[in-house]
Amino acid sequence: MYSKTLLDISSRITPADRHVHLVHRFLVPRNTRQLRIDFAYSPKLLQDEARQNTLVRQAVDRYMEPELREVAYTDPDYLVLQNLLTVSLDDPAGFRGAAHRANKEQIIIVSESTATPGFLAGPLPAGLWELTVSLHEVVTDKCQFELQVQAAETEGADGL
């Protein structure tokens, strides 16, 4: 069904990259009927307990008032640190959607008539589109993401 791969990239990121936006500009060919984006990253959770405790301690000290800190250091709600990467999509005219959600594996479909929640259905104009990976949080030493964009052509388009 998907006849063309428009983007296929694998990136390794580290905590130094947190709060970075990685913009992938790619060409959507004429007669594209549907786009499929596969996005996956790993790991999701920070397993290193010592590191987790340190990071929570730093956040609590930075954001909370002194009298509340002692309890907060061991708050079970806080002690589940995770990486958060989100994707957003822009066509040549502007915003086409965003997936602000925690899932570490996502498939996003955009076509003229339907779109995955978070994205706008509508015509898929040919030209340079952008897929942005926003690195909201990177707490593990290393994190790897895979990003692939595939296009399905309008039926009969290749037959001229």
Partner: peptide, 13 residues
């Protein structure tokens, strides 16, 4: 404005 921020809740503060 004062919810605990990163890395517990990025941007929340």
């Amino acid at each position: 404005p004062f919810r605990i921020g990163s890395p517990i809740c990025t941007g929340c503060y």
